[in-house]
Amino acid sequence: MPRWGMVIDLDKCTGCQACTVACKVENNVPCVEPEQAARGRVISWMEVLTTVEGEYPNLRVRYMPRPCFQCDNPPCTKVCPVRATYRNPEGLVAQIYPRCIGCRYCTNNCPYTVKYFNWYRPEWPPEMENYLSPDVCIRPKGVVEKCTFCHHRLQRAKEDARAEGRELREGDYVPACVQSCPSAAMYFGDLDNPSSTVTRLTQNSRAFRLMEELGTEPKVYYLREGEWYGGAKG
């Protein structure tokens, strides 16, 4: 059984937000009005975290795309009172929307705050409503949702492979964010396959995981920004 994981090269990330947009369109993530967004009600399964360092004029901006880390030891699944979130055999942390009771305990126990709640019934501008993806269900109001590593793409890739009578190959299944990254900063594949690109990259000396010390075993690795930073001024 593969163990799906992601590697994000922060050296290559330009902070263009293509991943964020691709994710929203792919996964039928509802649009939120600006007034609600200001109140912290945005839903964005993929979020580019931005840090500004230093003081003007010596500023430096860092970007860090943040999907769900699909932890191997997820704190969120432990606390769900109805098993609406669980880690599936392929290591993906799944959400069962029709079962979620909306208690938001999982959102509170995620140290990375990657889980989102549907405060209202999801809405789109009328023009967009005709272009919702048929592969992903629309979440009702009152349930928790989060990045699934585009799990529906895995299902489709498996079906295609079965139809062609072959095994799943590397590259058959990539989430929308990885596919859309213009600077190819994101990699996706099987972390248990020793010859896959992602496995090779996780052994890179620049590789790290966010808040590893919590023991959550995230399956998203980052590659630290390279040597050129720090030497040059500004």
């Binding site: 109805v82 079962r99 979620c100 009771i101 909306g102 208690c103 938001r104 709640f117 549907n118 009702p140 109001k141 009152g142 349930v143 928790v144």
Partner: peptide, 9 residues
């Protein structure tokens, strides 16, 4: 609860 209708779950 976001979904009180499901409380018996």
């Amino acid at each position: 609860l976001g979904r009180p209708d499901r409380v018996l779950y």
